[in-house]
């Protein structure tokens, strides 16, 4: 069950073109019947598995696939 849900999250992220960072509530929309805290647990597990990662503006935090995104290269690669 939880593996299926995690797969759905990855598919959602891979399916988006031109955008690599998402707010938490983009994920709760994938699982309308699930409590927000349950969705959060899935995301936390995916972070631990190094499949997704956080991105922060300092005031807000977003989620995206590990290593993806235009700012990623400039930040880590310098």
């Amino acid at each position: 069950m939880s593996e299926d849900a995690k797969k759905q999250i990855i598919e959602f992220l891979e399916g988006k073109k031109g955008k690599t960072k998402f707010y938490f509530n983009d994920f709760t929309k994938i699982f309308p019947d699930m409590k927000a805290r349950e969705v959060k647990k899935l995301l936390t597990e995916l972070v631990k598995e190094q499949k997704i990662e956080y991105w922060s503006s300092g005031s807000t935090t977003m989620y995206g696939l590990a290593g993806a995104g235009k700012q990623h290269a400039t930040e880590e690669g310098e």
């Binding site: 991105w55 922060s56 930040e75 310098e78």
Partner: peptide, 23 residues
Amino acid sequence: KHGGIVGVFGYGGGVIGRYCDQP
């Protein structure tokens, strides 16, 4: 410049990324 680094592994906060624009 701001950077999106957020922290240590598994944490989504605690670190604010900063880069100088005259490195």
